[in-house]
């Protein structure tokens, strides 16, 4: 359906988007995930036609629409902060797009009702948008973007200005609404949990490049590089040097670590970054276990349904992992690292 080819864009003479290409299929929900300032919103604005790329093409159903003005593209965009028209009430905000398309009055009223019903806001149709709560505004913006039945829906950080509890609730509602739709959806966010909830496929955008794409599960367990791993909060890092290929062993500051080989082939003497997934660490007293280490509990942080434990190994390294019942601070513990939950990246 939508295809971007080699999109480039500069901002203040610095490259903001460097050769971005991707494809969004029919009724696919794609999340563009990345840190702030990475060019996510600009990418949306280029798709919308609000901004022109310095180079590259935007194709819709294989037709180049790069020169088509925004009002002729029939794409819906839900803005960050919603951009509701302050001079119009809820009904007129939602009706705005329908009126622009010269739809008959009774048809407009029917479709606005339908759109407001979808977000369960029919009862406040006559309210001024300036009186709405954050959550209500978000839903009005969603209804407004959908009312003209766009061919593609884009959402720019729709949870951005809401508080945390509201976010958790609304993201579920939004997920249900989006999964019912049969149009492509592009959802921009910097929040991985939102992306995991909403997306069929995630594109990770960093410094103007798509560094990885794939399903949420795949990306989380197979980050492309150390940056993606840290972006997902995988911070149990170790530097090492390969000292054996079969079995695969790396020499690190805390000792030798054995791990399973993935796609990339390694050779002896090669420097690698190891990332140990939090699920890889299990407590044990058996010092014969593979990858057995001893350390001291540095911290136990209550997280509601579990504890985040921090264990230090002779001031050389620190790992975090989850436990249901915590150990006290300062306790000496033994633990093993599961060989198939260790990610490795070649040093660049």
């Amino acid at each position: 359906m939508l295809e971007l080819k080699h999109i480039k864009k500069k901002f203040n003479n610095l490259p903001l988007l460097k050769n971005v290409s991707f494809f969004v299929g029919k009724d696919e929900t794609v999340c563009i995930l990345g840190p702030s300032g990475g060019g996510k919103s600009t990418l949306l604005r280029i798709i919308a036609g609000l901004e022109k790329p310095a180079a590259g093409d935007v194709l819709w159903k294989d037709v180049d629409i790069s020169t088509l003005p925004p009002h002729q593209r029939k794409f819906g965009l839900m803005f960050q902060d919603y951009a509701l028209f302050p001079h119009l009430n809820v009904f007129d905000n939602v009706a705005f797009g329908l009126r622009m398309h010269h739809i008959a009055v009774d048809e407009i009223s029917r479709r606005v009702d339908e759109a407001l019903e979808m977000v369960s806001l029919r009862r406040i149709a006559n309210r001024s948008v300036t009186d709405l709560s954050g959550g209500e505004k978000q839903r009005v913006a969603f209804a407004r973007a959908l009312a003209p039945k766009p061919n593609l829906l884009m959402l720019d950080e729709p949870m951005g200005s809401l508080d945390r509890t509201l976010q958790d609730q609304l993201i579920k509602e939004l997920h249900i609404l989006i999964s019912k739709m049969d149009i492509p959806v592009i959802y921009v966010t910097h929040n991985q949990e939102e992306a995991f909830t909403i997306a069929d496929r995630i594109l990770i955008l960093n410094e103007g490049r798509i560094v990885q794409s794939g399903s949420p599960q795949y990306i989380y367990t197979h980050p492309e590089d150390l940056w993606v791993a840290s972006f997902f909060g995988l911070n149990n890092k170790l530097e090492g040097k390969i000292c054996s290929i079969d079995p695969l062993i790396a020499e690190t500051v805390i000792g030798k670590i054995t791990f399973l080989c993935g796609k990339k082939k390694l050779s002896v003497g090669e420097a690698v970054d190891l990332v140990i997934l939090p699920t890889a660490i299990t407590m044990t007293e058996n010092n014969d276990d593979l990858n057995y280490f001893e350390g001291q509990i540095k911290d136990n942080i209550f997280k509601g349904n579990s504890y985040t434990m921090r264990v230090g190994i002779r001031e050389l390294a620190e790992f975090s992992f989850q436990m249901m019942t915590p150990y006290p601070k300062g306790k000496k513990v033994g633990f093993a690292i599961d060989t198939d939950s260790i990610l490795y990246f070649e040093k660049k």
């Binding site: 919308a48 009002h71 965009l77 705005f96 622009m100 398309h101 407004r144």
Partner: peptide
């Protein structure tokens, strides 16, 4: 921009 996205010339 929102108006343009909603189809306004």
């Amino acid at each position: 921009n929102a108006a343009r996205m909603l189809g306004a010339t």
